[in-house]
């Protein structure tokens, strides 16, 4: 999958930056440190925006592309922050055959065309298409901020979203 670039403004704090710098210093003499640094950076910020990758590149004395190449390669790295309302729709096999595609389309429609992998520019909503989350018995299933909703039909979507608006 092509990585989605974010349109959400960066809201990093001084404290987060200090944490990040400490992480980079910790791995100063470690070979192949890019992966653990990116992982810990994502723990600090929740995602890996350009502002964060620039700090990493400068302090590791590598080009920004070298950081971005790795960040865009691995699916666990996100270039988008999770929204305040983080919606994840399971597109595993069971959910998919039970109509998860319709569910995600309905959510997208309700949220102004937000696509899987996107976060709305105001940072309020994020929509993610996940692989199987192990709740096949409830298919099709989605989660909002970790709360699970199962055995859905597309008409349920509006009611669920209304709770978080």
């Amino acid at each position: 999958m092509k990585k989605k670039l974010t349109t959400v403004m960066f809201r990093g704090t001084k404290a987060q930056e200090e944490q990040l710098i400490a992480v980079i210093e910790k791995y100063r003499d470690t070979q192949g440190a890019m992966m653990p640094i990116l992982q810990e950076a994502q723990e600090i910020y929740g995602y890996l925006p350009i502002e964060v990758q620039k700090i990493i590149a400068a302090r590791m004395d590598v080009s920004l592309e070298e950081v971005y190449g790795v960040a865009s390669f691995y699916s666990q790295f996100s270039l988008n922050p999770k929204g305040e309302v983080a919606i994840a729709v399971c597109l595993g096999t069971a959910c998919y055959v039970k109509g998860a595609g319709d569910i995600i389309d309905r959510i997208s429609l309700k949220l102004g065309g937000l696509q899987a992998g996107d976060t709305s520019p105001d940072g309020k909503y994020s929509l993610e298409a996940t692989r199987c989350i192990g709740a096949c018995g409830l298919a099709p299933v989605l989660t909002v901020n970790g709360e699970v909703y199962g055995r859905l039909v597309k008409e349920d979507v509006d009611g669920i979203l209304a709770k978080y608006m």
Partner: peptide, 18 residues
């Protein structure tokens, strides 16, 4: 190093960061 391989698999392409 202003260019490199972005994304992966079938989407891999050579471009600049972000």
């Amino acid at each position: 190093g202003v260019i490199g391989a972005n994304d992966r698999g079938f989407d891999t392409h050579i471009a600049s960061p972000f």
